[in-house]
Amino acid sequence: MAYSKKVLDHYENPRNVGTLDKNKINVGTGLVGAPECGDVMRLQIEVDPETQRIIDAKFKTFGCGSAIASSSLATEWIIGKTVDEAMQLNNMDIVEELALPPVKIHCSVLAEDAVKAAINDYRVKNGLPPIAVEEPASQNVNN
């Protein structure tokens, strides 16, 4: 399967690869996927407590090129957004932006899950209840 230009770009020049200090109170960490499924994503956000804005985001991903590109794109999108805005992230926007084929939709789902898990981790750390996350759209029969 050939990759789209945008997937290749994110794969070759991934934005925001790295690690934030997960012990900091204003850092939220989301770890989703599983090694036996062939994909694990860890996405972290650093939030400005005053403005509730995401001032930094980092990811590390074990997975295919589409998974790496999806997480790279997700970090790029959420930096500068408020936590509430970031919570609106929809995996289908990633699918569209990266022109992912149907078999790679679950890679985008993982990125959405990772963002939401990171936000909820941040919320729980700061004494807020986690926001229920509905199952994102996925066409992966294996999910």
Partner: peptide, 17 residues
């Protein structure tokens, strides 16, 4: 990263999807 930090991956709670 976890492997390098000496974390046993069997103890990590993954979320198979």
């Amino acid at each position: 990263e976890m492997y390098k930090e000496g974390i046993d991956l069997k103890t990590v709670e993954f979320r198979p999807h």
